[in-house]
Amino acid sequence: MATATIGDITIGYEDEGAGDTLVLVHGHPFDRSMWRPQVARLSRAGWRVIAPDLRGYGESTVVPGKTTLDVFARDVAGLLDRLGVERFVLGGLSMGGQVVLECHRLFAHRLRGLVLADTSAPADTPAMRGWRRSTAERLLREGMGPYAEEVLHKMVSRSAPPEVAAHVLGMMRGTDPAGAAAALRGRAERPDYVAMLAGVAVPALVVVGADDEFTPLADARLMSDALPDATLVVVEGAAHMPNLERPADFDGALQAFLKAL
């Protein structure tokens, strides 16, 4: 584990391996440990793999209030500046995938490829914006425990290995409610990225769990159809976190994509 001071916050991150750089951005309400299988496998396969904790999560600084996606994106860029990385492949899952899209909006010239896992490009509907804001208040009021129990089997299927379910539940319970609430409020205000997709000039891998209820196959197909150079991979037997439920399938698709770059 390493930390870096970026502006007025401290970011915890993993930095393993050597070679071309792959950066992996976690989802909500998780931390960088969700990428543990990918960091281990890809760092042994000739890649330098960097996985940060976003502000408000894991071992990074918790900043209450509201954290918009551009703030997350600039934190990622700041960390990579500190580590001397100019160009990289960037991947993210769920909210992390939306951070990837925001990074493309802000500094597309630095990206060699995109990995968009179990995420969606459109802006929130008014109803979803209301849900995110009310959920933020709920987390501050109740803590993470009740929410974590409620959504566990949407994050991973009931057939997921017990150790995977325990890991996911532990990440959710361990997240600071103030950090999670700030991200929910900011995410409700994110722009619509759909029109941007046609202008993406690098290859993209779009991955989705076949049983994902949060960001189903239709969301993945919308992105893969709009992107000029995209590969769509559907991971059978997985819900919202195929990288943990079916790591062999997920990593196989990711390695094939990286090899083709």
Results as ranks from 00 to 15, higher is better:
T215H: 10
D81N: 10
E16G: 01
L111Q: 09
V194M: 03
L90E: 02
T119I: 09
F250H: 06
A260I: 04
D31E: 05
S43G: 08
E149A: 15
V156I: 05
G143H: 03
L42Q: 05
A248N: 11
S33L: 03
R129T: 11
E86P: 00
R190Y: 11
R74K: 14
R87H: 11
F250P: 10
P203C: 08
A160T: 04
E236N: 14
V208E: 14
R185C: 07
A117V: 10
M1T: 07
R133Q: 13
D53P: 04
T119Y: 05
D15L: 06
L24F: 06
A256G: 14
D176S: 14
P242Y: 07
G17D: 08
P216S: 15
A183G: 13
H109F: 11
A117F: 01
V99I: 15
L80N: 02
T3N: 14
P203H: 09
V200I: 15
H153E: 04
M196F: 00
Q38H: 09
A166I: 04
A117I: 04
G92E: 00
G174N: 08
H240C: 12
D225R: 02
M155E: 13
L93S: 13
S224N: 03
E150L: 13
D212C: 04
A136M: 07
A188K: 05
L54N: 11
G19F: 03
D229R: 07
P126C: 13
F214S: 09
T21F: 01
D20I: 02
V234L: 06
G113T: 06
H104S: 11
D8S: 12
R138F: 12
M95Y: 00
D8Q: 10
A73I: 03
P162G: 11
V115C: 07
R48E: 07
A45E: 09
L140F: 00
L152Q: 05
R246E: 15
L169F: 02
V63D: 03
D70R: 08
A256W: 00
A183L: 08
R36K: 12
M144R: 07
P242A: 07
K154H: 14
A218W: 13
L106W: 10
A183Q: 09
D229A: 13
S60A: 07
R133E: 14
L22D: 01
E149N: 11
E14G: 00
E59S: 15
V200H: 00
L254V: 07
S134N: 10
Q38P: 08
L69V: 03
I6P: 02
A18K: 05
M144F: 12
A45N: 08
L258G: 03
E189K: 03
